[in-house]
Every structure is written in structure tokens, then in C-alpha cells.
Amino acid sequence: MEYFTVKFIHVLGVVLFLGNIIVSALWKTQADRTQNPVVIAFACRLVNMTDLFFTAFGAALITIGGIGLFHATGIAISDAPHLTIGIGLFGMAAMLWLTGLLPLQIYMSKIAAKTVQAGESTMPAAYEKSRKLWNIIGGIAVLLPLGTLYFMIFR
């Protein structure tokens, strides 16, 4: 592929990926502050939907574009330690998302939906515990890609 094509794919992936993880965290945090199970359930559903599309699709575009850029530029990974660090941080963020955030989000969404179905006005303790863990893991999962962005731009 041509350099500008793969660069466009890569940058589009970064915009979708970073934009979604930051906006999702904001939506979810603001919904939790309302303490309204209906609002929280709605936000949880949207976070799950947008994560599966924008985060996963963005990550795929980042990967495809990144591999394409390696081929288009002929850069050897051994000649670019900043790329190795950036790729490592991105990989760690992906693992956190797959093993921590995604399962927690699905679990919290189920709790919120059941709470709304039961007509309850407060979220159960299990949700609150999960929310706190999600905030910690999510904070790290946002910082890692921002670190990746730093190493990819400021060699």
C-alpha cells in the first residue's frame, strides 16, 4: 500500500480509538454520578456498543496501518526503540481492555439492567465495587495509549 493510504488508515484508527476511550470514560463517569439506575444502564449499554465498534475497529485500523507503515517506510523495528515502546504500551492497553475492562463493562451492564428491571432506585453494592475497579483499570488503560501517542510522535 502507498504510504499516505496506510498513514490515513493508521491516524483514523488512532482518532476512533482514543476518542472513544476518552469519551466513554466521561459518559460513564457522568452517568454514575447521577446515581440513577436508568441513566446508568443506558450509559453502560452505550459504552459496550461503542467499545465494540469504535475501540475494537480503531485498534484494528491502528494495527493494520502500523504494519502498513512499517512496510511502506522500510523501518526496522530494531532501529526505532520508540516504536517498540509505543507498541508495547498499546499491547498492554489492549490486554487491560480485553481481560479487565470489557468483562467488567459487560458485568456492570447486566447489573444495571437487572436493577432497572426490578424497579429499584439505587445501584447494588456489586455495581459500586465494579465501578471503582473499572475506574482504576480504565484510568491506566487510557494513560497507556496516550503514552503510545507520545512515543509515536515525539521520538
Rank of each mutant, 00 (worst) to 15 (best):
V14K: 01
H82T: 07
V14M: 13
W97I: 11
L146F: 10
A59H: 01
P145L: 00
H82K: 08
R155I: 03
A72S: 11
P103Q: 09
V38I: 14
I22R: 04
A112I: 14
V23L: 14
W27C: 06
I67A: 12
C44T: 05
Q30M: 13
T34F: 00
G66W: 00
F57V: 12
G91F: 03
T29I: 11
V15L: 12
K114N: 09
V11N: 04
L101R: 06
T50L: 10
L52S: 13
N48C: 09
L89N: 07
L89P: 07
L52G: 12
P103K: 13
I106D: 00
V142T: 05
P103G: 10
T84P: 00
G100Q: 12
V38T: 15
N48I: 00
P81K: 08
T122C: 01
I62K: 00
W27K: 05
G88F: 03
L52P: 00
T63K: 02
A31M: 08
S130H: 06
T148G: 07
Q117L: 11
Q30K: 14
V15D: 03
T84I: 14
A94M: 15
E2K: 13
A112G: 12
W27A: 06
E2C: 01
D51A: 05
K28Y: 12
S121A: 15
D79F: 04
G74F: 05
K132C: 01
L146K: 06
E120L: 15
S78A: 14
F53H: 02
M123S: 02
A31I: 05
D79W: 08
M1V: 15
A59V: 05
R131G: 04
Y127G: 02
R45Y: 03
V116Q: 05
Y127T: 02
T73Q: 10
L83S: 06
A60R: 00
Q105C: 02
I140A: 13
L96G: 14
V142K: 11
F54V: 04
C44K: 09
P103L: 12
V38W: 03
R33S: 09
I75T: 10
M49H: 11
C44Q: 14
R33N: 11
I136P: 01
L46N: 12
I136D: 03
A76I: 03
R131W: 13
S24G: 11
H10C: 08
E128Y: 02
L12Y: 08
A125M: 07
L144E: 02
R155K: 11
L18Q: 06
Q35L: 12
N20H: 05
P103T: 04
S130G: 15
D51N: 14
I77T: 07
R45V: 09
L98C: 04
T84W: 05
G138E: 02
L83N: 10
M92V: 15
P124Y: 07
G58H: 02
V38Q: 09
M1C: 12
A31P: 07
T5L: 15
S121I: 12
A93N: 06
I21Y: 00
A59P: 01
A126I: 01
L46I: 13
W27Q: 08
Q105N: 15
V142P: 09
A43V: 00
T5D: 03
T148W: 03
I40G: 07
M152R: 02
Q105V: 00
L146H: 02
F70L: 15
L89K: 06
M95F: 11
T63W: 08
M49S: 11
L52C: 05
